[in-house]
Amino acid sequence: MGSISLSHVNKSFGDVQVIPDISLEINDGEFVVFVGPSGCGKSTLLRLIAGLEDTTSGHIRLDGQDVTDAPPARRGLAMVFQSYALYPHMSVRDNIAFPLKMAKTPQAEIDRKVDYAARTLNLASYLDRKPRALSGGQRQRVAIGRAIVREPKAFLFDEPLSNLDAALRVNMRLEITELHQQLKTTMIYVTHDQVEAMTMADRIVVLNAGNVEQFGSPLDLYRKPANRFVAGFIGSPRMNFIDGAEAGKHDAHSIGVRPEHIRLSTSEGAWQGVVNVSEQLGSDTFLHVQTDFGLLTVRTDGDQTFTHGDKVWLTPDPNRIYKFDAAGQAI
């Protein structure tokens, strides 16, 4: 079991209020991702749940039990750090066995569990090495191994993949997702990579300046963003926003259109513009088009070959225009 509940959690460092007031319900077995811009309080929130930071006010419950004042060692959660935080003086085997040793597990059981974890994570041949003799990806696996052996109530990940190269990230992303499907243990995962957020999460928490902007499934966030911040944060390339008269036509203070919801034509359409930059990715082409309402991004197929200065017409999909009021809330 591993349901996590936060009610009116507040965290201040001295006079600086980092998290004003957050309430969240995370269900047992859920994969929840915290995303948000740098400095918005993702790590702080995760560390509050872990018990590595003291809560200034509010309550944290694990399976209904109040753990607000419990030290991390008594919460039964496991954490994977961005820096891996392996014990440099211990072999891989001892690193993985450490939590079991702390729990006074019998030696025979420790050996069995460490061997099992090592086989699952392809670490069997490195068990006697020290962490410094491992690659980044292997270290990450050891960190995960150390987290899984003790069968925690929930896993906490703080940007675990950000030190890995792109190809390895994709692999590890899949491995973590598979691990979740296999273990069915609650996982909370902090990232600022929205591809990771969209692909891994059951539900995503979008944070901004210490506040929850929206909490929902990836597709909910994509299709029905609660406000302009979420609309701009989820989706890549980011949504185009148009203010002023053009927005007024839709009875809104501002409107948003995603690059993938704009049709491109050389002859006719709603808005006229001139291609500024064309980014060709092979599969897609992103055009940055200068229009009367500013620079708009358009996603089109990879075969388009526009260059700087080409005149184009843009037409937004009328069913996919997002409208926002003056406060930025979705209408």
Binding site: A50, L52, A73, M79, A85, P99, R150
Partner: peptide, 9 residues
Amino acid sequence: EAARMDGAE
């Protein structure tokens, strides 16, 4: 902190 998370008093 990792040690604390791993249950070390």
